[in-house]
Design a protein around this nucleic acid. Structure first.
Length: 647
RNA sequence: GGGCUCGUAGUCUAGUACGGAUUAUGACACCGGCCUGCGGAGCCGGAGGCCCUGGGUUCAAAUCCCAGCGGGCCCGCCA
């Protein structure tokens, strides 16, 4: 007999037994829910019900007495995975029958192998996970790297849950900043990158943007003849700040900086050139199209290389400009206009989110409190151009033409914009879509005492973090296993370093900010990917040395507390997976893998596998070790971490 | 000013959706042990907590509700 979820089978049996017993003992009472929870200690069993505390009220009797009655009323002939039921202090405690339960669990893991732990959903959906979507202006930095790591883990979870998942990258190429980089790139004569393309583009962007900003401020100061002293002071302060940044950049990249400065200074009004380019691009003018697409593509090629290093791939690259050129944005706009929730003020078109909430009574649906006010959203500027969120409405509707559910992995600082987006869908009558639009929000990654700013070139790139991780892992592996060949060491350093980074970024609760420190991200000890990887390699090593596969299970031999604990942990993996997939909590997979590794290491130190007292016990422990290897591998795979045979 | 979010040992963190048991999870750092043993990236032990504060609901609150306090974020004709 094989089970896709052994612990759920046990829970199900307990529920049935409990329901029957309660019905039998107190037929005058109608009970609908039969709560079962994990007791704090193993001597209270593996599942326990506090039901009698509730019944005590209705029946006006003591919980302890009722628990005894419930236990007496249980029908033992129905026990399969249950060993016994006991009443302790008002709780009804269920004890698992370990010989049977171990056999079921280990047999299931052995038979299902890499498919163990992934029960399929009853309602498979077509789901789009949009993640990363970093603007193609500069390399992905560590503050943004949490996004692809979370998005990719979510996609893996949902796929294995049985959904049809496709991952999308939204290329934000419409907007002033894309024209800034394109302008600088064109000024330099569209040079071929002499390093990784996104790093190359990043430098040009930062320098160009700095020079243009400084130029703008200076001209503004010249024109400010009748401005107040305060305004002049503010301008001077900004100029001083940007001059400092410029000096820093000139020092770091003298050739590039001076080349750009010379070319840009030839333009009397660079600001105006950039705006022109921006308008031409939105209008689909061929030269502008070619230029901006070329520079964006260059940067994206760099992103693809970085993503590949961490085993992340995208099914679709969606260009924001395509939605502008194809009139999907203007179509959505005219629909919004006729919805009655749009008003114009001084030539600016505004979307009245608050009125939508009131008229359509969305407060409860959106989980908003009475006093929460949602500000209006600007849809169209006075000059007739659209804004990011406006275009996002069109993009979101396009995504819904391809999927039933859309998950946007976006930082929590965009919560309001994502809420307004959802409200816009309701305003257009796309209720079902609005309900299936999920903003998967996560908190920022920050550097201690340092404000990351891509405009100023102040950031640590994701590539740098990966390089450093691999370098440190290499030092570590050289120290620990000097006998390995150079090639082996490099290979191990790669998956250990990258695993460590992925684990560190997925492990923390998404609601909490991560303060980036090298020690935190490059942890190779307990509660890290390397620790779990090491444990997996250790299990593999034992299995290699065993040189045989047990033909019988001998599960009744596994009667140590540590072994029981391991079996229970293995058996509950499907439950953990379901929770992670349903509630979008990839971090609990990381926690689970660490907990399982911990338990296995404790077991390993306390009890011999290959030198067990009897051949039967030895076989049983080999089977257990094999199961642990499989489950560790399956768990690590969910968070995109390699499970190595050796390291 | 309004809203969102977080608050658990020196630092970091699990548990909070769905309230349960006289020991609240684990890591780092700290103190003391364990390598002729299946891989020491490990294991065992010790010390360290008014679960932000105050009320409320309940047989039972880290968990739910209310009111505060503290940090972060958002409230743009930026994205």
């Amino acid at each position: 007999m094989v089970s896709v979820n052994p612990f759920a089978d046990f829970r199900c049996e307990c529920e049935t037994v409990l329901a029957q017993a309660v019905k039998h003992a107190f037929h005058e009472i109608e009970t609908v829910a039969f709560p079962l929870g994990k007791p704090p200690r193993p001597d209270y069993g593996q599942l326990a019900s506090p039901l009698c505390f509730e019944l005590a009220k209705k029946l006006k009797r003591k919980p302890a007495e009722l628990a005894v009655l419930v236990v007496q009323a249980t029908d033992k002939s129905h026990f399969n995975l249950i060993e016994k039921v006991e009443a302790v202090g008002g709780f009804v405690n269920f004890y698992v029958n370990f010989p049977k339960f171990s056999a079921l669990t280990l047999k299931s893991i052995k038979q299902l192998g890499k498919n163990y732990g992934f029960p399929k959903t009853d309602a498979p959906k077509k789901i789009i996970v949009e993640h990363t979507s970093v603007n193609p202006l500069h390399p992905i930095h560590i503050g943004q790297a949490r996004n692809p790591i979370l998005g990719d883990s979510l996609a893996r979870l949902l796929k294995l849950r049985g959904h049809n998942v496709s991952t999308h990258y939204y290329v934000d190429d419409v907007g002033r900043q894309s024209s800034v980089i394109a302008y600088g790139y064109a000024k330099l004569g569209k040079p071929k990158p002499d390093e990784k393309a996104d790093h190359f583009i990043g430098k040009i962007y930062t320098i160009t943007s700095c020079i243009v900003e400084l130029n703008r401020l200076k001209r503004q100061l010249e024109a400010a003849t009748d401005a107040s002293a305060n305004e002049v002071a503010k301008l001077n302060k900004d100029i001083a700040e940007w001059t400092g940044i410029a000096a820093e950049l000139e020092h770091k990249y003298p050739t590039l900086f001076n080349a750009l400065l010379e070319k840009i200074s030839a333009d009397t009004n660079p600001e105006e050139e950039i705006s022109k380019l921006n308008r031409a691009y939105e209008d689909g003018e061929p030269n502008a199209q070619k230029l901006i697409r070329e520079v964006s593509e260059l940067c994206l090629e760099g992103f693809r290389q970085t993503a590949k290093r961490v085993e992340i791939f995208y099914d679709s690259w969606d260009w924001e400009s395509d939605f502008v050129w194809s009139n999907q944005v203007s179509d959505v706009l005219s629909k919004l206009k006729s919805s009655g929730f749009v008003f114009s003020e001084e030539g600016v078109l505004e979307f009245d989110a608050a009125k939508v909430i009131q008229d359509l009574q969305l407060r409860a649906k959106l989980g908003l409190r009475e006093e929460q006010e949602v500000p209006p959203l600007t849809l169209v500027r006075a000059d007739g151009t659209t804004l990011y969120t406006t275009r996002d409405v069109a993009y979101t509707l396009w995504k819904f033409s391809k999927a039933e559910k859309v998950i946007n992995v976006i930082g929590m600082e965009q919560s309001l914009a994502q809420l307004q987006l959802k409200i816009a869908l309701y305003a257009l009558g796309f209720n079902k879509q609005a309900e299936n639009l999920v903003h998967f929000a996560y908190n920022l990654v920050t550097l201690p005492g340092y404000k990351m700013s891509s405009r100023r070139g102040h950031y640590i790139t994701f590539d740098e973090v990966l390089d450093e991780a691999i370098k440190r892992a290499y030092e570590e592996v050289s120290k620990r296993s000097p006998q390995l060949t150079e090639e082996e060491k490099q290979n191990i350093a790669r998956f250990v370093g990258i695993g460590a980074v992925r684990y560190a970024l997925v492990d923390v609760d998404t609601g909490k900010p991560v303060v980036f420190t090298w020690d935190r991200v490059l942890n190779f000890e307990t509660n890290s990917a390397p620790y779990v990887q090491y444990t997996h390699a250790r299990a593999c090593s034992i299995l290699r040395k065993a040189e045989r596969a047990p033909t019988k299970l001998f599960c009744e031999e596994l009667d140590e507390q540590l072994e029981h604990d391991l079996i229970l942990t293995l058996a509950s993996f499907p439950d953990v997976f379901i929770e992670a997939a349903e509630y979008l909590k990839p971090n609990i997979i990381a926690d689970y893998s660490n907990a399982l590794a911990d338990k296995f290491n404790t077991f390993y130190n306390a009890l011999p596998v290959l030198k067990a007292e009897t051949p039967e016990l030895c076989d049983a422990r080999i089977t257990l070790t094999e199961a642990i290897k499989i489950v560790l591998n399956n768990a690590l795979n969910l968070i995109g971490v390699v499970a190595p045979e050796k390291m």
